[in-house]
Amino acid sequence: MAETLNSSETGGGRKFECAARRFLYIWEGPIRIIHWVNFFCIIILSFTGWYIHDPFITSTQHPYIMGNMRYVHYLTGVVFAVSFLARSYWLLNGEYYASWRMFPNPFDKKDRHTFWTFIRYYTFLSKDAPHILGHNPVAVVAYIGLYALFAFQILSGFALWSQADPGGSLYAATGWLFAIIGNQWVRWFHLLVMFLIGGFFINHLYSVVLFDFKSKSGEVSSIFSGWKPDRRD
């Protein structure tokens, strides 16, 4: 359960006392660590992946450059996959804000209403949206999509890797993907999804800053510290 921290001692009768009644611990340590591991993994994977797509540095500058790039790509891929699995564990067993329990329920009238309120807010059809601790329902949908992209990227990455040994267990575990989409298209999508993740990144950064301004609830700092002010009043 969320811990609280009283902010009354920051008062003093002035107008600029802290607007928050108290602080709530929203993002647990593992969630923050996973967030930043993913962040760095994606940057490294995108850079080395782009190099694999278009080897723009040649051997005259660096001997064995492709071998090293691929090594870093695969190693980071493994770290990313572990991070993904860890996040999946917290999705199932984490506390409220990190778990599936905070998904909006499409069969619940109130949840649907909140969802559309946020859609209207994002599309300028309304000026305000309720303050929500944790993810707002539209963001949750975006994260489910992102989670699917990660899953595909990991599955396709390991499948592509496994082709070096079609008799091996990695191929047995992931090679079925090639029965659904041929390996050329797996590779094509593995490249395309990098751009989709890039598109998400822009969206994500913008939305976080937007809500940081709108709700003055420390969205940006919360992913470093874990704390958010309780401003639901």
């Binding site: 395309l192 989709l196 890039g198």
Partner: peptide
């Protein structure tokens, strides 16, 4: 190509 589509999306 994937790059063209991807660049358009980003």
């Amino acid at each position: 190509s994937a790059v063209k589509i991807g660049t358009a999306i980003v």
